[in-house]
């Protein structure tokens, strides 16, 4: 049984059909990268997997660990192990980062039939992950993503991912807006989580990210579906020749 299986997926926003017969299979432990020009549907794909209500699935299926993902609400998908690191993380004024993460982890534990983390367990887990990613106490005290630079927001997304320990991580344009130092921190955060029971889907425009996080498979997405798949050398070819040949 595949870990994540997307079959003939079609999805639209409003009246605009964006995903057109999209299929992809991901197994445990694998890192997949999807590359494609602007408007090819990469972000739509990540939002559809995570369950954004603005996207309507018109055909096809997504199975995650044997379950029908499309039949689940967004919060249920998250608690089953799906995590989306957003391209543009939302700012939540007035919502403290620590409280936000405590609510999220305890929602997941409740879903899994586990008791809430107490204050001591929570703080320990928070501090361990924060230290590893260079997230300071001051950053944890701020409201979620408020007043953070683009790079800090991406770092916080990676931190949330490390904290919540999902099984399937989608990283939507993790590299955009990052300088080399921040990119290394974020990539390292991903690499330490690369374990046999977890899989990753990287969505990116550029080959650069793949120097730091090495994918097992690279897929090229154009006009709502995958038009070519290969190994990491495909990304290098793409960097040289661009997307022109696929249009």
């Amino acid at each position: 049984m595949a870990f994540l299986e997307i079959k003939n997926l079609c999805a639209k926003v409003g009246e605009k059909q964006i995903l057109k017969d999209f299929s992809l299979t991901i197994n445990e432990g694998e890192i997949h990268a999807i590359m494609g020009p602007n408007g090819s549907g990469k972000s739509t794909l990540s939002n559809v997997i995570a369950g954004h209500p603005a996207y309507e699935v018109t055909a096809g299926s997504i199975t995650f660990k044997g379950q029908d993902l499309l039949a689940m609400r967004a919060d249920e998908r998250a608690n089953s192990g799906v995590f989306l690191a957003f391209q543009y993380p939302t700012e939540l004024p007035g919502v403290g980062t620590a409280l936000f993460l405590k609510t999220a982890i305890n929602a997941k534990r409740k879903f899994l039939g586990l008791p809430d983390l107490d204050a001591v367990q929570f703080m320990k887990r928070l501090k361990t992950r924060a230290t590893a990613l260079g997230v300071t106490d001051e950053m944890l005290k701020r409201p979620v993503n408020v007043g953070f630079s683009g790079g800090e927001k991406k770092k916080m997304e990676t931190f949330q991912m490390a904290f919540l320990e999902p099984d399937f991580c989608i990283l939507d344009e993790m590299d955009s807006g990052l300088d080399i130092d921040a990119l290394r921190v974020v990539a390292n955060g991903v690499n330490v989580m690369h374990e046999p029971h977890r899989a990753f889907l990287l969505i990116t425009h550029y080959q650069r990210l793949l120097d730091y996080i090495v994918p097992d498979f690279v897929h090229i997405m154009v006009d709502g579906k995958i038009v070519q798949s290969g190994d990491k050398t495909l990304a290098l070819q793409l960097e040289e020749k661009g997307y022109e040949n696929y249009k």
């Binding site: 919060d75 936000f100 929602a107």
Partner: peptide, 11 residues
């Protein structure tokens, strides 16, 4: 805003 919280598992 709502989706961001839902995507983190919050009902």
């Amino acid at each position: 805003h709502l989706f961001y919280l839902l995507s983190r598992g919050i009902p």
